[in-house]
């Protein structure tokens, strides 16, 4: 079902607010994984604000949909979304990375309300998601599980163990995204360790795979709806994204994987976000 113009506008506005807040947190806490947080934002805004059954006041409700950020370094973006959903007081985000804060670069479900699995070490999230999805099936629960993988993360073997298992166990009550921003820490994925042809690889492993623009809400929504209808194969949405999306001086540059911002850069970043939002 196509997005209504008002709905589309609201998602875009929400994504802008989330990105602005990520910039604020990055500035305040002295540094964050800002590049990847920017690339994943539209996917996560679509999931949390359009699809997921999730009550921020009851974050552990057994019937809730599950969300696992397997690329755990995107934690700053995840925390901002959960703050905006009022899982906790947004002001707490200003303590991000500080000694004793519940928020570190990689979120821990035991400390941050709304998080379903503690991630950070790569290659863990998909297996956990499969476990949650199978548990739903075994217990006749209706919740859906969403997993967001990084693309550099796919260098690692555990993911391919999980990708093989998801097809074998016919895990269709789970939707997986690859945040394909094409950069890992040391540079372009295809230079460091190529992951292409990614769609073919997933298909060869028995998945249904689609490729979309990960910053186009209509395409994201359409792909997720398609994944809900799939009954035979696990479903992956390879979302082509831009690391640092929305901030002109960051876009497509590996060096913004983890970085800090001074006051001037923060101003420029916020201005860029607002400008790009208007134009796009």
């Amino acid at each position: 079902m196509a997005l209504k113009p008002a709905e589309l506008k609201k998602l875009k506005q929400t994504a802008l607010r989330i990105r602005e807040q990520i910039v604020e947190v990055t500035y305040t806490c002295g540094g964050a994984h800002i590049g990847g947080a920017m690339s994943q934002t539209d996917i996560m805004v679509a999931l949390y604000y359009k699809f997921m059954k999730f009550d921020p006041k009851k974050p552990l409700l057994p019937t809730r949909d599950r969300f696992i950020l397997s690329k755990g370094h995107g934690g700053v973006g995840h925390a901002v979304i959960l703050g905006y959903l009022d899982c906790f007081d947004k002001k707490e985000l200003l303590d991000f990375n500080k000694t004793g804060s519940p928020f570190g670069m990689h979120l821990d479900w035991l400390k941050v309300k709304g998080v379903d699995a503690s991630t950070g070490s790569l290659g863990h999230g998909l297996s956990i998601g499969i476990g949650m999805a199978i548990a739903a099936r075994l217990q006749n629960k209706k919740y859906h599980t969403y997993v967001v993988l990084g693309d550099g993360e796919l260098h690692g073997g555990p993911n391919w163990e999980a990708i093989m298992a998801a097809a074998h166990f016919k895990v269709t009550n789970m939707t997986t995204f690859v945040d394909r921003n094409k950069l890992c820490i040391d540079g372009p994925t295809e230079e460091i360790m190529g992951v292409e042809p990614l769609k073919d690889k997933f298909e060869a492993f028995g998945w249904k795979a689609v490729e979309i623009d990960g910053h186009d809400f209509e395409q994201i929504v359409d792909a997720v709806e398609q994944s809900h209808k799939e009954t035979e194969k696990p479903f992956v949405i390879i979302a082509n994204t831009i690391k640092g999306k929305g901030i002109d001086f960051m876009e497509g540059l590996a060096k913004w994987h983890y970085a800090g911002l001074d006051e001037e850069m923060k101003k420029q970043a916020l201005a860029s976000l607002r400008r790009m939002n208007k134009n796009g």
Binding site: H124, S127, I128, P158, E161
Partner: peptide
């Protein structure tokens, strides 16, 4: 595939 083995077990334990 033992790495997936423990990941799956973790997800299952998280879900009842």
């Amino acid at each position: 595939a033992e790495m997936n083995l423990f990941g799956m077990a973790s997800g299952m334990a998280a879900s009842g």
